[in-house]
Design a binder for these strands. Structure first.
Lengths: 341, 341
DNA sequence: GTGAAAGCGCTAACAT
DNA sequence: ATGTTAGCGCTTTCAC
């Protein structure tokens, strides 16, 4: 356990002042130093195995070169690609990321923002999707650079990156409509999450445009984006006895749960009921009958978010592209077909 | 963008010295302070919205209260639960984690260890599984607390947490043997990863114990733990023309690829060939015919690793439980059955 | 072109 | 029980 080499050590070694060493090691400041001094410092630095102490530098410059990533839960398969996308952009620029999981609990989210701030992060990418929380606005007010993913925060000019949820739902409704479906049920996601709300609203809007009757009995709202909730919701739809030929689910996991419920009731997908998801999770293509879904480019969303954050960090005026809407894509698989009748 | 409240601000507010404020806010140091002073400081701290600057504290105490987590790739579904398990233990204790992805590239791994050290992490949990890299030993030598997951580092008393790979393979071989399989093929994983090597060695050892002939023509070594490699390896096995009734794959992804190759060749699983994986990835149960596999408790592995790291961090003597072997579990599904005859 | 000095915010001896 | 002083390692004015 040898003590770490500091600027002072290098300075002592060369008989120069620490500030000289500091300058020699900073590409920006080398201009006003003798070329000779620069090389000598660099050589000794390498020789002694010098590594800068970023905490000390950060304390002085008030830039920690670290950012916080807030997501609901890394074990949810849609988030790892987002995280990787973010790091793909940030890491080459010298930023480290501190990852925190909010579990969609407001209290936890608030606490974690504090934690991130205490650690001096320069910015936060907020991919957790609670619709109403005051803390993130507060963080932005406090001077932290913030970009949200999948959400707009009302009353604040916090830049956001969202996927085109509405277009996704539109493509699904259109696809089902073209196949001949007219009685389309909906299993919506939690309405306190922006994705849940947006997809639900888009469903209502689009079905209306297509002249489909919005039968309240054909709509269920799941409390969580989880298989079990999808199962229960589908059960409730079936129990009501109202006929339907297709079910649009707010995400893939709800759809997988619904699929399970249908099968338990002896219904075949897509023969008896067509089913759609949203997200295009990994491995979804391997699960029969293959879920028709909307593909979101999670990796790219992460990259884009990170780029927006860098934009803000680079230009101190804090003005950056306010809105970015990423395109989504319809993926056709075996779970949708023309209704029998 | 208001400037942050510091200890000095509180001190000025109360007309006391910063050190008094510092002490009043530190639960450990409150003993030798008047109860009155403590409450007054706390009240003002809350009133002004004081938040400690951990970078400054860390610079002074040489403890950043942050740790590094090194994994190959967070988008690999087996790692998120590990990460969550780690944070489940570390976060309540006030540690933040910096996550880095090595992509199993030695050069990248070395660089990232440096990055973590530059940021003053107190320790590293190393869940990347390259078998030979000098850098992690170097980090341990430098005084960083290190725990590895899934790997022992030779010649260093670095504590490690591993899953009982050998027992897993043994259970699989036994299961297939009981079913009546005698000609068992193997698709091994990359041999530069400890899991790849350990599972391969366990296969050789166990089949020998069971008196099964180790036909080199029934063994393929995949270059990556990926579906496509599994597919190719299975293809090569089939092309050789040697008969086999079962294939033990080094992990689930290789097995899924192999399954694909079998099906393309018109072979049914398990009717013509039984197939096994390793890990029990999420959603694996939904993919037909259901892969018989070994379940690893990833979340618990993460928790255990974190606990070991805390052990080291807490007791300065750096002596902790050197080895932890976690039990694994056989999960029977539809991909294994008795050979046709 | 380089040195001196100050200070980021905090903690930890050492006083009193 | 509290104040004084020093310093973690770095950057950055201001001198010369």
């Amino acid at each position: 356990m040898n003590k770490r080499v500091t600027l002072k050590d290098i300075a002592k070694h060369l008989g120069v002042h620490v500030s000289t060493v500091s300058r020699a090691l900073d590409p920006e400041k080398q201009s006003n130093l003798s070329a000779d001094a620069i090389t000598r410092v660099r050589d000794v630095a390498r020789e002694l195995g010098y590594r800068p102490n970023r905490l000390a530098a950060g304390l002085r410059t008030r830039k920690s070169m670290s950012i916080g990533i807030m997501i609901p839960d890394i074990t949810n398969v849609i988030f790892p690609p987002i995280v990787r996308g973010i790091e793909n952009v940030l890491e080459p620029r010298g930023y480290a990321s501190i990852l925190v999981n909010t579990d969609n609990i407001a209290e936890r989210e608030g606490r974690l923002i504090q934690v991130l701030r205490d650690r001096g992060v320069d910015g936060i990418i907020h991919a957790a999707v609670l619709r109403d929380d005051p803390t993130i606005s507060w963080a932005a007010d406090e001077g932290l650079a913030v970009v949200t993913l999948n959400r707009k925060v009302d009353g604040h000019e916090i830049p956001y990156v969202i996927n085109d949820e509405e277009d996704g739902i539109r493509m699904i409704v259109d696809h089902l409509y073209q196949l001949g479906h007219r009685r389309i049920a909906k299993i919506a996601g939690p309405q306190n999450l922006s994705t849940g709300l947006l997809r639900y609203e888009a469903f209502l809007q689009t079905t209306k445009e297509y002249g489909l009757t919005a039968d309240p009995d054909l709509i269920e709202v799941a409390q969580q984006f989880e298989e079990e909730e999808g199962r229960k919701s589908a059960r409730r739809l079936l129990d009501k006895g109202k006929p339907f030929t297709a079910v649009i689910c707010a995400n893939d996991r709800l759809a997988l749960g619904a699929l399970n419920a249908l099968q338990e009731s002896g219904l075949q997908c897509p023969d008896d009921v067509s089913l759609t998801g949203f997200n295009d999770m990994p491995f979804l293509d391997l699960i029969p009958p293959g879920l028709t879904t909307i593909r979101i480019r999670q990796f790219r969303a992460g990259q884009t978010c990170a780029q927006r954050l860098l934009d803000i960090l680079d230009q101190s005026d804090r003005q950056a592209v306010a809105e970015t809407i990423l395109p989504v894509e319809l993926v056709l698989r075996g779970s949708t077909a023309a209704p029998k009748s």
